[in-house]
C-alpha cells in the first residue's frame, strides 16, 4: 500500500536558488533591520541578523521584492554571473 502522502517540510530539499538570474545584495551599513524584506519574501529566505538582512541564496529566486519593499533601499538586485 503506497499512498501519495508526503513528509512535512520536505520542500526544503528543493534548492530554488538555482532559478535566480538577479541576486539581492544587502548594504549592511545602510540596513536598519526593520524586517520588511523578511516579512514580504514569498520564499521565506531573507533573514534579519544582528549584522543586517541576509538572503539565503539556496532558496532565493531573485524576485526583487525585498529590494523593492526596503524603506532605506539598502538591497540592490544585481545580475548574477554563473
Amino acid at each position: 500500500m503506497k499512498p501519495a502522502n508526503g513528509k512535512p517540510g520536505t520542500s526544503m530539499e528543493n534548492k530554488t536558488g538555482s532559478w535566480r538570474t538577479q541576486m539581492p545584495v544587502v548594504d549592511k551599513e545602510k540596513c536598519i533591520k526593520c524586517g520588511q524584506c523578511a516579512m514580504n519574501c514569498p520564499d521565506g529566505c531573507i533573514f534579519v541578523t544582528p549584522n543586517g538582512a541576509q538572503p539565503n541564496y539556496e532558496y532565493c529566486k531573485g524576485c526583487g521584492i525585498c529590494s523593492q519593499v526596503c524603506p532605506v533601499k539598502c538591497i540592490k538586485m544585481v545580475t548574477e554571473e554563473k
Partner: peptide, 15 residues
C-alpha cells in the same frame, strides 16, 4: 509554510 516551494518568483500567494 516552508521554503523550497515552487511558486513563481514574486508570487504574492506564497507571501
Amino acid at each position: 509554510f516552508k521554503s523550497g516551494h515552487t511558486a513563481c518568483a514574486g508570487c504574492a500567494v506564497a507571501t
